[in-house]
């Protein structure tokens, strides 16, 4: 198998680090090799955070070269636009449409979504409002649910769910939000 590269992009505190670990663990369960690298530390305090996940038989670098990510999962619109340069020509972008404004002011999320739609061929926009209302603390697993339902991972949805449910913390919430993400895609809301 050719290496599969997935980039996660978000803001400190959104659960990006855990999301990349869950994907890598699911890949490992399927017998693949996996590498990830995440930003931890200073950037956690409200800064931009990204995680690189690479899956395959033999992976060398934990970092994804630009223009070669198969999938980007962006936890908010500006962080999708910021990392879009990593997406491969036929890659898929899953982006949550709820903006996280920086302390320095507000920005226009629609401009960012317009930009990603006109520069990527496969963009899946996930509505943030229902997630915020029903499972605000587990946005990460909701986005994984939407991406899984789109068939973007090189492993089954069941394996990913199994890995998510193996975490003792927020088990019920994660199940609910993962299914919400899947349903939103099915209903065409995503």
């Amino acid at each position: 198998m050719k290496a599969f590269s997935l980039l996660i992009s978000g803001v400190g505190g959104q659960g990006t680090v855990l999301a990349s670990k869950l994907i890598a663990t699911a890949a490992m369960k399927c017998g693949f090799s996996a590498r990830t690298t995440e930003t931890i530390g200073m950037a956690q305090r409200g800064g931009c955070v990204f995680g690189h996940v690479r899956i395959g038989e033999e992976i060398f670098s934990p970092l994804i070269p630009k223009g070669s990510a198969d999938v980007i999962i962006a936890f908010e619109p500006a962080e999708a636009a910021r990392r879009l340069t990593y997406l491969s020509r036929n890659g898929a972008l899953v982006v949550c449409d709820s903006a996280v404004n920086p302390v320095t002011g507000t920005y226009n999320a629609d401009d960012m979504l317009k930009y990603v739609k006109s520069n990527a061929s496969n963009v899946i926009i996930v509505r943030g409002q229902p997630i915020k209302e029903q499972c605000a603390k587990t946005l990460n697993t909701a986005l994984l649910g939407a991406a899984a339902q789109c068939g973007l991972f090189p492993f089954s949805t069941e394996i990913l769910l199994e890995v998510i449910l193996a975490m003792p913390k927020f088990r019920e919430e994660n199940l609910k939000s993962f299914n919400l993400g899947r349903e939103m895609y099915n209903e065409g809301q995503a």
Partner: peptide, 20 residues
């Protein structure tokens, strides 16, 4: 030239790390 250059994104928000 396997990577095509994307047009510049709209002005991206600056996110300095801040106290919680």
């Amino acid at each position: 030239s396997e990577t095509e250059l994307l047009p510049e994104p709209p002005s991206l928000p600056v996110r300095p790390p801040v106290m919680c």
